Computed example of a mutant assay.
Amino acid sequence: MKTIQDELAQVYAFRELNRIDQLRVCNEARDQGLTQSEIARRLSLSQPEVHRILRKIDSFPELLLRTPREVILDFHAERLGHEAMMEELLNWSYTYSEHAEPGNPESELISGSWESVTDAFLRDLIDVEDYERILHTVSGEGR
Rank of each mutant, 00 (worst) to 15 (best):
D6T: 02
D6W: 01
Q10E: 15
Q10N: 08
Q10A: 13
R15P: 00
I20A: 15
I20F: 14
R24G: 10
V25E: 05
C26D: 06
C26V: 05
Q32R: 14
G33Y: 03
S37V: 03
E38L: 00
E38H: 00
I39E: 00
I39T: 00
L43V: 00
S46C: 00
S46P: 00
S46A: 07
Q47K: 13
P48L: 00
E49P: 00
H51Q: 14
I53F: 03
K56H: 14
D58V: 02
P61W: 06
E62F: 11
L65G: 03
L65S: 11
T67L: 08
T67R: 12
T67V: 08
P68L: 11
V71A: 07
V71M: 04
I72W: 02
D74T: 01
H76T: 02
H76Y: 03
H76L: 03
R79C: 04
R79Y: 07
L80P: 01
G81I: 02
G81P: 01
N91L: 13
W92D: 08
Y94R: 04
Y94K: 06
Y96W: 14
Y96R: 13
Y96E: 13
E98I: 06
E101Y: 09
P102R: 05
P102L: 07
G103V: 08
P105A: 07
P105W: 04
E106G: 01
S107F: 05
S107A: 15
S111H: 10
S111P: 04
S111D: 13
S113F: 07
V117K: 05
A120R: 02
F121L: 08
D124A: 14
D124G: 10
D127C: 12
V128C: 09
E132N: 15
L135D: 11
L135Q: 11
T137K: 15
S139D: 12
G140K: 09
G142D: 14
